[in-house]
């Protein structure tokens, strides 16, 4: 029976000495971390190739990004307020059109009514 006072039960405890523990840490932890980094780096390399191929293809097909319905800017907002507004508009257009926010760009906006 496992109680609060008992040490680890047999099935999850080890009798490794210090050198065996260090070997286990090297073989599993350090090599494992390197494996994760190498596999992720391979995927990174593949995605970079993707970017070169498809980025160029896209540039030839459509030189300009698809823009959200927008009208010429009539008035300027300044600094932080304007950027916040752009973020809000981007989120609203993405939600309404059910398209990712990365698929369009808000280039200008103006107030529609003044009530």
């Amino acid at each position: 029976m496992i109680t609060v006072l008992s040490l680890f039960p047999e099935e999850i405890s080890s009798s490794m000495n210090l050198s065996e523990k260090l070997a286990s840490i090297f073989n599993t932890a350090i090599i494992g971390f390197l494996v994760v980094i190498v596999v992720m780096a391979i995927i990174w390399a593949i995605l970079e190739i993707f970017g070169r191929i498809f980025g160029k293809e896209k540039a030839e097909d459509a030189p300009e990004a698809k823009e959200a319905p927008a009208v010429p800017a009539a008035e300027e907002e300044s600094g932080a307020a304007e950027e916040e507004l752009v973020a809000v508009i981007t989120a609203a257009v993405a939600a309404a059109s059910e398209k990712p926010a990365s698929s369009f760009r808000v280039v200008s906006f103006r107030r529609a009514g003044r009530s």
Partner: peptide, 17 residues
Amino acid sequence: VFVSYAGAVFLGFSAAA
């Protein structure tokens, strides 16, 4: 993940645990 693996081994857990 790998730091806590080392910590668990030092505390006396088996490698799998």
